[in-house]
Write a protein that binds this DNA or RNA. Sequence first.
DNA 1: GGCATTGGTTTTATTATGCAACCTGTTTTT
DNA 2: AAAAACAGGTTGCATAATAAAACCAATGCC
Lengths: 151, 151
Amino acid sequence: MVRRKSLKGDYCPSARSLDAIGDWWSLLIVRDAFDGLTRFNEFQKSLGIAKNILSDRLRTLVARGILKAVPAGDGSHQEYRLTEKGRDLFPVMVALRQWGEQHLFLPGEKHSKLVERDTGKTIRLEVRTEDGRPVGPDDAVILRVPEPEAP
Amino acid sequence: MVRRKSLKGDYCPSARSLDAIGDWWSLLIVRDAFDGLTRFNEFQKSLGIAKNILSDRLRTLVARGILKAVPAGDGSHQEYRLTEKGRDLFPVMVALRQWGEQHLFLPGEKHSKLVERDTGKTIRLEVRTEDGRPVGPDDAVILRVPEPEAP
DNA sequence: GGCATTGGTTTTATTATGCAACCTGTTTTT
DNA sequence: AAAAACAGGTTGCATAATAAAACCAATGCC
């Protein structure tokens, strides 16, 4: 592969995000973390991921501040928990879920569902302006950051 | 690698989504498509991606119904355009962008910004219940689909 | 006709991934 | 107490995915 390109310096936030979490397993691990999993073996069983890969991904997720490793009460093992930064990925997860529900299931096919705990009401997400009007892709433009000019 | 695991059959929509678009380049291509790029060379220059990989990714994005390849007016080249399904990834892109803005830039650092075309107002996205109340990660639970039982 | 451009494909080198085996420390079973 | 099982990894090897570069075919332009 000759070193995969890094977009860390890109001025597009989406690109940086993908650089940070855009590999196949990381977001699945985060999804499971949202789902309450905390332990190495729990992730491993849930995902069927190879242990060395899981080990590596947990390490980098911790290094990037998305998970934190805390020693469990009895000291026998570690717990991997979402940090604030990790929890802020919630909208990303919901967006992915929503798209999958819309487009990746056959008409009658069942899928898990995200609901509000207390009321059981469906949760969805909406793109809006700061004053609350919904917007679609065609109403949006990206404002580029001006290139630093050489004087 | 011995064949990367497929999550196509998983009942979690997020997992299926990641299966469909969760590789490093695909979403970057989609981002550029949202940004108006349509031609092979445009993507290639914008992303600095190897041509064989771009070729492969465009092919699979088309095969998955996220992009469509339409012959351009003068027949000299193809245009890759987002399908409806592809445009529906808009919230995913916005979510990634928003997270990147929050967490992947230094305090004073500039980044590109997503605004409403007509008003210039900032665009953001919010997770809400069907009746409009905002919800956070801790207010949500995943309702699993019941396992099909063996009779 | 000759040459550059576009949109790829092929070849080759290197990295990443997956599997299985192994290891250490702790907990449970006998 | 000894044996077995489990948690949480690491190591070594085979193979797949990626990147870079060279190559190629079909227009478009002079």
